[in-house]
């Protein structure tokens, strides 16, 4: 009788533990949504590139790079990133709100160092190109309305960091409707 009661309670503990385990695993991604870049000023990131590192992001970024983000969403329309990239390695990634990679572009995909990139939903990209009269421009079509554009500039040593910072200062990220 005693063993039966103990076994019953033990099974109850395992049952509750199982439910808690499953619920926790399923809830973690949803709970982490919008957490990737919570430390940055979203209003500022909607009009310019903002540097990110361990102090203002939980995203697992390479510390050998100068990382910066700007935010895009359906209300402001496509974002336009323009300027000169450094001669060292660089890449651009479009991320969802929770930091998931949606699309990427790296030095190998572009001729030269000047970049002029339009990012947003396909329909919004076409509308923005027509209204702004932009013909020759790189585009990154995304399946979401909002997220972040992450620019990674290699900054492995002091010289590279200097070049990366110089490029970062010259890069412009703003809604295409501002043009």
């Amino acid at each position: 009788m005693m063993i039966d009661t103990g076994l019953r309670w033990f099974v109850a503990v395992l049952f509750i533990a199982g439910l808690t385990h499953i619920a926790t695993v399923l809830l973690v991604p949803g709970h982490s949504r919008d957490q990737a870049f919570t430390g940055i000023d979203l209003a500022e990131a909607a009009t310019r590139l903002v540097r990110v590192d361990g102090r203002n992001t939980v995203a697992d970024l390479d510390p050998a790079f100068l990382n910066a983000v700007c935010r895009f969403d359906g209300d402001t329309g496509p974002m336009r990133l323009s300027g000169a990239m450094p001669a060292t390695y660089w890449s651009i990634a479009a991320l969802s709100e929770d930091g998931r990679i949606l699309s990427t572009l790296s030095r190998e995909d572009l001729r030269g160092t000047d970049i002029d990139l339009l990012v947003g939903r396909t329909a919004a990209l076409d509308a923005a190109r027509q209204s702004a009269g932009i013909g020759d421009i790189e585009t990154m079509a995304l399946p979401v309305d909002s997220g972040f554009l992450l620019v990674r500039l290699f900054a492995g040593d002091l010289d590279d960091r200097g070049r990366a910072e110089e490029s970062f200062e010259g890069l412009d990220c703003r809604p295409a409707s501002d043009d």
């Binding site: 695993v25 399923l26 973690v28 991604p29 709970h31 982490s32 949504r33 957490q35 990737a36 992001t57 939980v58 995203a59 697992d60 970024l61 990382n67 890449s91 990634a93 991320l95 969802s96 929770d98 930091g99 998931r100 990679i101 699309s103 990427t104 572009l105 790296s106 190998e108 995909d109 992450l150 990674r152």
Partner: peptide
């Protein structure tokens, strides 16, 4: 999915 969320994203994409 939980591991990726816990890492906070920012991993490398295919062209990177």
């Amino acid at each position: 999915a939980a591991r990726a969320a816990r890492r906070g994203g920012g991993g490398l994409g295919p062209s990177e």
